[in-house]
């Protein structure tokens, strides 16, 4: 059996050229119709569906030998799935990798947008589990497709307003729906709504890949991305009462770290690169030096 020899050889960036062409054509359509979900014939990838196969296929289709890749999960470069995806691209594309947001030409992310403002020429690739913002209101693809076609988004407004009626505020904290360039309602992927404003007129190209659901969508640079809201209940992002305990940053998204079983906790930057950079610059949080070791 010569299977071993066959299995050992993969094309650059894993995908075969025909697959890349198919995905590339879908990306071009996605850019031309911002916020519209382009169906594509997603491939089985060597990692499970739901673990970033859409983002990986998009990255593999745009990535070239001159790129520098950064992969984050929950804002961090060292979470296991980010490590795994980064190692995958190092292996199959021998591409340069970095943890620095500013140095990266392509950033693949799950659940966060980096704190550092992205620049022209950068590409942010989102891993998307459920690309359809209307899916939890209407489970049928045949129906939601019609709703997008007719620009019929009343149901979404009703849902958000019901939240307000019941709770006094909108009870959606992540995957908060946005409207792109005044036309398509889009799921920003499960990023906290804290990150939504970063999408608006971003200098970077934003590409979204949903492997299991077989959809690609995009937001070109300098494109309007507006979080849905109401005049009497304007969109608001999360606010944290205290700064990052390690670097002292305010106005960033924080993770709550449990320190002991007596209710002790600290809040630290979810964006590890941002936090490290600030600490290197000499910023000090009130608990710096007491950070718990990452588990082995």
């Amino acid at each position: 059996m010569n299977t071993h020899a066959q299995l050992a050889t993969y094309n650059f960036a894993y995908l075969d050229e025909q697959t890349k062409r198919m995905i590339r054509r879908a990306i071009l359509k996605a850019i031309a119709i911002p916020g519209y979900q382009v169906p594509f014939a997603s491939r089985e990838m060597p990692m499970p569906y739901g673990w970033g196969t859409g983002g990986v296929q998009v990255t593999a289709s745009v990535l070239g030998p001159d790129d520098t890749l950064k992969v984050i999960d929950q804002g961090a470069d060292d979470t296991t799935n980010a490590v795994s995806i980064r190692a995958f691209f190092q292996k199959v594309a021998n591409v340069a990798v970095t943890t620095s947001t500013a140095e990266a030409t392509i950033i693949q992310t799950r659940h966060r947008i980096p704190e550092e403002t992205l620049k022209e020429g950068q590409i942010l690739v989102y891993q998307v589990p459920i690309p359809e913002p209307l899916r939890f209101l209407e489970p049928r693809e045949t129906e939601t497709r019609k709703m997008h076609a007719l620009e019929e988004y009343g149901l979404m407004h009703v849902k958000l307003y019901e939240d307000i009626a019941k709770n006094g505020h909108i009870a959606t904290t992540y995957a908060y729906p946005v409207k792109v360039e005044g036309r398509y309602v889009m799921d920003p992927s499960p990023t906290p709504k804290f990150d939504n404003p970063k999408m608006h007129r971003s200098e970077a190209l934003q590409l979204f890949g949903a492997g299991r659901e077989k959809r690609i969508y995009a937001v070109p640079p300098y494109t309007d991305v507006v979080s849905l809201d109401f005049e009497d209940h304007p969109f608001e992002i999360q606010k944290f009462d205290e700064p990052c305990a390690l670097c002292g940053a305010r106005n960033v998204y924080l993770d709550e770290v449990i320190l002991n079983d007596k209710g002790g906790r600290m809040f630290v930057c979810s964006d590890t690169d941002h936090c490290e950079k600030r600490r290197a610059e000499g910023h000090v949080g009130h608990l710096a030096g007491e950070a718990p070791e990452t588990a082995q």
Partner: peptide, 23 residues
Amino acid sequence: VQATGFVEHLKLPHYVDFQAELD
């Protein structure tokens, strides 16, 4: 293969979203 991937992806860290829900 699709089903198991998505069900099992709940094992991946979700602490950013959980933090938002906790809040």
